[in-house]
């Protein structure tokens, strides 16, 4: 029995905000099924009370004083924006209203 169905891929792609064509969903379902079958081998290993490892080396989050320092200018930060307006990134309207639409 397949480990993953096209509908599940469709749902996950929607969660990831990733539009896929029907052909992509078909192909990916098939590929992910083979990959998941391989990946499932980790389930055979008894990890008992082993602690999860989230960092490759021992890691203490370093702290520093919160002092203002030179940083990117607004213009530099916006320079790569596909669409900007004044000092803002521009996106389609999120909240319904009467003002100017995007």
């Amino acid at each position: 029995m397949p480990r993953i169905q096209p509908d599940e891929v469709r749902t996950i792609a929607a969660l990831a905000r990733l539009r896929l064509s029907e052909a992509e969903i078909e192909r990916m379902t098939h590929e992910l099924d083979a990959i998941l079958e391989y990946i499932d081998t980790v389930k055979n290993l008894d990890t008992g009370d082993t602690e999860p490892m989230t960092h490759a080396v021992p890691f203490d989050c370093p702290l520093r004083e919160d002092e203002p320092k030179p940083s990117l200018s607004v213009d530099d930060a916006l320079r790569n924006a596909p669409r900007r307006r004044d000092a803002f990134f521009e996106v389609p309207r999120i909240v319904p209203g009467t003002g100017e639409g995007a």
Binding site: V9, I12, A13, A14, A16, R17, L18, R19, L20, S21, E24, M28, E31, L32, I35, V91, P92
Partner: peptide, 20 residues
């Protein structure tokens, strides 16, 4: 905007890894 941009911009391998 998000989903179309990402669907158009990413190639097959990043898409596969994002979904996985």
């Amino acid at each position: 905007l998000y989903s179309k941009t990402r669907g158009e911009g990413f190639g097959a391998e990043p898409k596969r890894r994002i979904v996985l």
